[in-house]
Amino acid sequence: MFVDTVIEDKSLHKPAFLLGLSIAVLAFFFAFNFTNTIFGEFLSPVIGNPPESGFFGRLVVSFVLSIIFVLNLLLISFARLKIQILIVWIELFFLFLAFAYSFDLELAYIFIGEPSKLWLMISKGLFTTIYISAVSIAIATAIAIVGAIAKLSNNGFAYAIASFYTSLFRGLPLLLQIYLIYMGLPQLGFMIDAIPSGIAALSLCYGAYMTEIFRAGIQSIPKGQWEASRALGFKFGLILRKIILPQSIPIIVPPTGNQFIAMLKDSSLVSVLGIWEIMFLAKKLGAKDYNHLEMLLTAAMIYWTLTIILEMIQARIERKYQQKT
């Protein structure tokens, strides 16, 4: 979004807005009744035993909570933009941790074992997940280039095959595709291992989405570029390779980065084939002692960290292309 040059007063600094917000927040905390949580215990010197504090307790707890909430917002609003963003991130992260903490987990569980469960998740699971995703994205990219050209061509066969392919693989749930490939191909006499079928399913599915991204990227290059190239006597392949594709890369990169991040997480679906990637290991390692949530949270953290790293790489690539053009 493009920021205007005239800065409006922050709504948080308008008394009427502040009052309205406080009332709304108070109503929210009152409605959801936090008396029986950790907050009620904190306030027990005032309200006595939380479960018996009744209407008075509920009112006090929600009143205190809403004061803290609004004061927090007000204080943050005075900080500089970057500091604001940082503080809000940290606070939300702590809320998330508090949410996880409320599960009453045995966090030490992930470090037990020889080798420890965390190390197994990272050495085996993380490696397999990255391996499967990287190979799949490479194949999907190749499929997407061919698919996009086919969809833009005048050749009836090419267009028909490409559009049938994108329609089918965008139309079926990925989980279903994984099953179909793993269990369907052996019916035709091709014995196929779990990892290759997982990679095949991910490549074909994401190849279909990326075909559309590449097609849009190629189409967004103005007609004048084709005409100028043709007027110089360039042939089709040369125009595509040297003029059109290089110009569509900056347009293709951001959505492709999104696809890569999405694929990384969707690779968890191949756990149904028994591939030892992050998700499979999380379920398997937790199941033994019924410590499901510990392992699932560990998996969540690994996935999240991975996507943050990928987002940073994507931002860097985007910046590089912005500088060049």
Binding site: A228, A231, P246
Partner: peptide
């Protein structure tokens, strides 16, 4: 030579 130049921007 075109009205809109059509140079290759990259």
């Amino acid at each position: 030579v075109f009205q809109s130049f059509n140079l290759f921007p990259h």
